[in-house]
């Protein structure tokens, strides 16, 4: 590249009017070994720039994947659900339902059940009445058994008499 050409470019460069392509041209020019003495300062600058471009970041960066916090909250939510459930359970058990709370159909069913129960219980009582007769018979039987012992005694006595004969 001609010298006056590069000087023009350098002037534009100093005024920050060069494009990136033109700057690349300048850099290419100054990467040569010999440049005119009055441009030596530019050469230093571009050498410095070339040098800095090669610097690299070599340090390792610890990248930890962020744990999603959602999973941690699931246990909390589960416990909350359990507590609420337990509370309602206890609440329901403590609550007493009266006849007034029942609906019409429930009341009918209740009454029918009660009727059936009272019927069963009256039949039961009749059964126990009949049992009383049985117990009378058994007491009479016992009385009979006591009378039998007399007969035993009598027998003994007759046996003795028969032996002595």
């Amino acid at each position: 590249m001609a010298l006056d050409n590069i000087e023009q470019l350098l002037e534009k460069y100093d005024n920050a009017e060069t494009t990136l392509a033109e700057e690349a041209k300048i850099r290419a020019y100054f990467s040569r070994e010999n440049v005119p003495a009055h441009l030596e300062s530019y050469k230093l600058l571009f050498q410095y720039v070339k040098h800095t471009k090669q610097e690299q970041f070599t340090k390792d960066v610890p990248l930890q994947p962020k744990r999603t916090k959602m999973y941690q909250w699931i246990s909390v939510a589960a416990i909350a659900v359990l507590m609420v459930g337990g509370y309602f359970q206890v609440h329901q058990m403590n609550q007493k339902t009266t006849l007034d709370d029942l609906s019409h159909e429930q009341l009918m069913a209740y009454n029918q059940t009660i009727e059936v129960f009272s019927l069963v219980s009256s039949k039961f009582n009749k059964g126990t009445d009949n049992l009383e007769a049985l117990s009378l018979v058994s007491s009479k039987l016992n009385e009979g058994a006591e009378n039998l012992s007399y007969i035993k005694e009598f027998n003994k006595a007759t046996n003795k008499i028969i032996k002595s004969e």
């Binding site: 460069y13 100093d14 920050a16 030596e40 300062s41 530019y42 600058l45």
Partner: peptide, 21 residues
Amino acid sequence: AVRVALSRARKTIREKLTNKH
């Protein structure tokens, strides 16, 4: 503004560099 600042910086650098050189 960027162009102005760049031009100023380049001129400063070169001036100082020439002096030192």
